[in-house]
Design a protein around this nucleic acid. Sequence first.
DNA 1: TTTTTGGGAT
Length: 844
Amino acid sequence: MKLKCKNLEISDELMNVGKQRSVLVMALATHKLKLSSFSSLFAKLSFSTTSNNNPLYDSSVADNLVSVFTRQPSAAAAIELNRFAPILTPPLVESVLTRLPTWKLALSFFQWASEQHHHGYRHNCYTYNTIASIFSRSRQTAPLRTLVKHLAESAPCSFTPGALGFLIRCLGQVGLAREAHHVFDEMRVKGLCVPNDYCYNCLLEALSKSGEVDLVEARLEEMKGFGWEFDKFTLTPVVQAYCKARRFDQALRIYNEMREKGWVDARVCAMLALSFSKWGDVDKAFELVESMEGHGMRLNEKTFCVLIHGFVKEGRVDRALQLFEKMCRVGFTPPVSLFDVLIGGLCKSNDAQRALSLLSEMKKFGVAPDVGIFTKLISAFPDRSVIAKLLEEVPEEKEEKTLVLIYNAVLTCYVNDGLMDEACRLLQMMVQSKSSDVQMDDFFKDKKLVFPNAASFSIVIDGLLTNGQLDLALSLFNDIKQFVGRPSVLMYNNLINGLCDSNRLEESRELLREMKVLEIEPTHFTYNSIFGCLCKRKDVLGAIDMLKVMRACGHEPWIKNSTLLVKELCDHGRAVEACGFLDSMVKLGFLPDIVSYSAAMGGLIKIQEVDRALNLLRDLSSRGHCPDVVAFNIMMRGLCKVNRVAEAEKLLDEIVVKGLCPSVVSYNLLIDSWCKSGSVDRAMALLSRMSGEDREPNVFTYSTLVDGFCREERPDDALLVWNEMERKGCSPNRVAFMALIYGLCKCNRPTAALQYLREMEHREMKPDSFIYIALLSAFLSDMNLASAFEIFKEMVYSGFFPKSHDKSYPIVMDAIDKFSKDHRTSSGIQVLMEEGKLPTRCLQ
DNA sequence: TTTTTGGGAT
C-alpha cells in the first residue's frame, strides 16, 4: 500500500512533537544552522512504506528515509513519518546517516531521531560516532563541539573503548584536541567508558596534532601510572608533538627509542625528515631518507615533493637534486611544480646549464614546461643565448603553442628588466609575423615567429602600466581588440585602475561603458578604481552616484576609498559634507566603517564643532557601530582642546564601563591637558594609575610630563621623570630631547640643557633651530657670554640664521651686538663675518 | 585606516 498525503496543514499533533524537542536539538539549534525547522519539514514531506502499517526494517526502509530527507520538500506526509519512529533502531539510523548526501541533511535526520525517545529510540555510541565522523569529514567543528559537550553532559551513553577512540580521532582530525582531552576524562569520571591503551593512543594523536605538547606529556605519565604499555602508536604522536614544538632533542630521543624496538615506519621517518627540513637541517633530513632505504621504507610522492621544495628554500639545491633523482628512481613522475622549483633554485645558484639540462629531463617524462619555467631559464642567461636553443627544441606536434609560451617568457623577461622598448618591439614583430617580410632579430632569425595571444599583450600592457607608460598601454590595448579579440576583465581592470591612478577619470568611464557594450561584467575592483578616483577628487556627488551603481549590481565599496573621501574633505574643513556623505552611504544600505566615522569626528573637531562630534559619537551605536578606543580618543582630544577636560575624563570612565581598555593615547591626552593647565601633579597621579593598570607609558607620556614640570619651573622633577623614562628602557626621541632642553633653558639651566644637547647629538639627532635660540638666550641672560658664543657658532655653522621677520631675529641681533663689543668674542665674530657666515646687510 | 609629545607661525 502506498500512502501519500498532500499539502497537509501542520496539525496539533505536530505542534506537540515540536514542543518535545530534545535538549540536543535545542543545543544544536544554538548554532544557528539555517535548517528549515523540523516541524515545517515534516509538514511537507512525503514518504511511502513498504507494505503495511508495520514496516519491516530492511534496506528499503533506509532508502525511504533517505529519499524523504533528500527530496525537496514537496507533497506532505508529515504524520506518516511518525510511523517510522517505532521501528527506528541504531543500525537503521547509522545506515541512513551514511547515505545522506550532506552533513546538514544528516544533522536534520539525527535531530529527528533524537526526538523519538518517547518511542523508545536512543542513540548509541555508534550512531553518535557516525554523525561525529560526518561532521569531522565536512570540517564542521561547531556542531561537533556541541555534540560532544552534550554527550558528556546531558545524554549519557556508554562507549566501548574502541568507540571512544574513534570519537577522539574524529575530534582530532579537525583540531578539537582540547575537546578530545575533556571528553576522555568526562566519560571515565561518569563511568561511561573505561579507556584502554587504544583510547590513550588516539588521544595522544589528537593532542600532538594540535601541538598540545604539555598535555601529551601529562597523558603519557598517566598511562604509565595505569600500567599501560607503550607501543608504536603511542610514541609516534609523541615524536610528532616534539617536532611541532621544535623540541629537537626530545623528538630524537623518542625516535631512537622506537628504533631500538623496531617500531620505526615510513610515517615517523617522513615526519622527522620534514621537521629537519623545516628547521633548516637539510643534511640530517637527507641522511634520514637515506637510512630509510636501507630498511626497505620509502617516502610517498607528496613527502618527496615537500622535502624537495623545502631543500630548495633552504638554498640546498644539491640535496634537492639528489632527492629528486631518488624520487625518479622509485618510479614517480615529478609534477611541473617540482621542475619549476628546481630550475628556479639552480638559476638562483648560477647553475644555468644544469637548469637547462632539467628541461631535457622534462621531455623524457613527457612533462610540458610552462611559461614560468621558460622565463626562469631565459633570465638565467643574461646574453639571451638560450632563446635560440629553446626555439630549436620545440616539438613539432605542439609547435604553435610552445612557441607562444617561449615568446611570452621572453616578453616577461624584458618587462622584468624594465626593457619596455624591447618588449614592445618583439610584440610588434610577433603581430607582423603574419604579413611576412619582417626584419628578424638576431635571436629569432631562422626561427618562425608566432602570432601573439592575449597573454602576450597582457604581459606587455601590465609592464607598461607599472612603468607609468599609460598611453602606450592604451594603444596596445586597442591592438588587442583588433588582433586577438575580446580583452579579459583583468585587462580592463588594470587599465581602468591605471587611468584612475593618473586621475584620468573620463577615459576610465569610457572603458567601463565599453565593457558594458561587450557584455563583460565589471568586478568590484573595476567599480572601486573609479570610486576611489572620485573620492580622491573629493567629488561627493560623483562618489554617491557611483555608490548607487554599485548598490544596483551588488558590489561593496572598499573601506579605504570612503575613508579617503571623508579624510580629504575633513582636511579641507569640509567635515559637514563628509557627514552628509556618510549619511548617503547609510541610505544606500552601505554601513560605513568605524574608521571613517572617526575621521569625520576628527574633522568636526577641527572646525570647532565639538558638540556635533559628540553627537556623532553618541549616534554611532544606533548606526550599528560600537565606538572603539580610537574614536573615544579623538573625542577626548576634541574636548581637551576646548578646555572641557572634565568631560574628557568622563569619557575615559565610559571607555572602561563599555568594557574597552583605554590606550596609552587616552591617558596621554588627559596628562597633556593637565600639564598644559598647570596641574602637573594630577597628571602624575594618572601616571601611577597607568602602572597600576599595566599600561606602559611611552615616550609621549614622558615628554609631556617633562614639559609640564618645566612649565611649573620644576626642572628637578622634570629630570626625575626623564631618568625614570630611561630606567624603564624607553628611549627618548628628538621631540623628547627638545622638550627637555627647551624646558631647562626656560628654567635658567642652560648648562644642564647643553649637556642634553650633546647627548642628543651623540645619538645622531639634530635639534630644530628654536633650541639654539633658547640656549643662546638662556646663556646670555645667565651672563655666560663664552657659552652663548659657542652655541651661536654652532647655530651658524649648522646653516641656521633667522630671517629679519623672524621672532628670534632681534634676539640674535642683540647677541651679535654683545659679542662684537666684548673682547673675548669680538674676534670670533670677525672671523664669522670674514667667512661670510653672517648676512652682511644685518651688520651695520 | 582613525588617536598622543617640543616651539611657533599667521
